Computed example of a mutant assay.
Amino acid sequence: MTVFLTALITLTGALCSSATSPSHDFRYTYGCYESDEVRVDNLVDDDLCGYADFSKEEVVWAMPHPPDFVERFQKRVYEIAKAAISHCHSVLSKAKDADAGSALRQEAPSSFIYTRYEGEDGLLNTIFCLANHFYPPTINFTWTKNEVTITAGALDHRYQHNSDGTFRRISSLSFTPREGDVYSCTVEHHTLQQPLTRSWKLPKRKSSLSPAAVFLGVSLVLCLMGIGAGVFFFTKQPS
């Protein structure tokens, strides 16, 4: 059984506001799992601004220019995140004991594939594979090029929360498309009877000739053929 627990903590106004700038809502969410994985996200005004990286023992900012007041409290934010580990596992243990027979929630994902830029032959691009609305939050992405598995340039991004309690996650692949190549993303989740696979390839090049030009060209060819046939039969008439 896997239980996801969320706690929202709103810090004091001294942390979230200053005399020269409008107040901000700074809070964090944390969740833990039976696998001992703990996730702590920091939010400013409901937007993800950073997360705790326990391997590096620091908070990693997810926005390019975080507010000054957030950076000033970086050490304190990490201490709060670290304290959440024991608290989260304590609540998880109590939740399991209180409802040991409950069924695990199961939600199968949907998937979608798209590119950063309109695909052009020979130009570097990024392709994204989105898996959405799944639970529990364990999912696997596999990229292939012409049915051959590839890992170079692939990156699985962090899980994100949906408002209904499910999760979404994106995997990206840096690639240089070539005409005829087919890129596929396969999503595996234990709720699926079979993996979901979405494919992408360069769209066919549109003809540079307009319909009017094509019509004019065909008409001209037919006209010349008609003139040629007329000349042929005229020259064949008995003198």
Results as ranks from 00 to 15, higher is better:
A108E: 02
P109A: 15
S110G: 14
Y114A: 05
R116T: 03
R116Q: 09
Y117I: 05
G119K: 12
G119Q: 10
G119L: 10
E120I: 03
D121N: 14
D121Q: 06
G122W: 08
L123H: 14
L123V: 14
L123M: 07
N125F: 14
N125G: 03
I127L: 01
A131H: 06
N132R: 05
N132W: 12
F134S: 11
P136V: 10
P136H: 11
P137K: 11
T138S: 08
I139L: 10
I139M: 04
I139Y: 13
N140R: 15
T142P: 01
T142I: 05
T144F: 03
K145G: 00
N146S: 15
N146Y: 06
N146W: 13
E147A: 09
E147S: 13
I150Q: 00
T151N: 03
A152D: 11
G153N: 09
L155G: 07
H157L: 08
R158F: 14
R158T: 14
R158L: 15
Y159W: 05
H161M: 10
S163L: 13
D164R: 09
D164N: 10
T166V: 04
F167K: 01
R168K: 12
S171D: 04
S171W: 11
S172H: 00
S172V: 00
T176V: 11
P177N: 03
R178T: 09
R178Q: 13
E179S: 14
G180C: 13
D181S: 04
C185L: 02
C185R: 00
T186K: 05
V187T: 07
V187N: 01
L192S: 01
L192V: 04
Q193Y: 15
Q193S: 11
Q194W: 04
P195I: 01
L196G: 01
T197G: 12
R198L: 03
R198Q: 07
R198D: 03
K201H: 12
L202P: 03
